[in-house]
Design a protein around this nucleic acid. Structure first.
Length: 111
DNA sequence: CCGCTGACGTGCG
DNA sequence: CCGCACGCCAGCG
């Protein structure tokens, strides 16, 4: 197994772990997850990771939002509604346009 | 190597 | 507040 390939898996592992650390009822941005996992500036990579999740994955992908607190999926995709429903289900207010108040629900490490 | 695409982010008008 | 250009990074053909 090539070295760079291992690093990639390792990075993905850290990203997953970071997403995993999000408490119920709290949300974080893609960029925040990346930075927290030691990959500043790699927000798109977080998006890729989540986009490639298996449908049966346990990862709480719904707690990850775009900068500003918006659902980043295309509105027309079923997953958009799924994400909003999951957020509402755990008490996170999310308006009909998919926006969440980060001041209120944003996750900040160490609390 | 090139171009296209996407669950990103930021700056600007 | 919204759209848009641009920078960015990875994967794919």
């Amino acid at each position: 197994m090539p070295h760079h390939s291992r690093n990639r898996d390792q990075a993905d592992q850290r990203l997953r772990a970071t997403v995993d650390s999000l408490p119920t009822g709290r949300v974080a941005t893609y960029g925040q997850i990346a930075t927290e996992a030691g990959l500043p500036g790699r927000a798109r990579r977080v998006g890729q990771l989540l986009a490639n999740l298996e449908t049966d994955s346990d990862l709480c992908w719904h707690r990850v939002l775009g900068a500003g607190g918006q659902i980043s999926l295309p509105r027309e995709r079923p997953a958009w509604h799924e994400q909003r429903a999951r957020l509402l289900a755990e008490g996170v207010e999310c308006d009909d346009r998919g926006r969440v108040d980060l001041e209120r629900y944003g996750w900040r490490p160490d609390e």
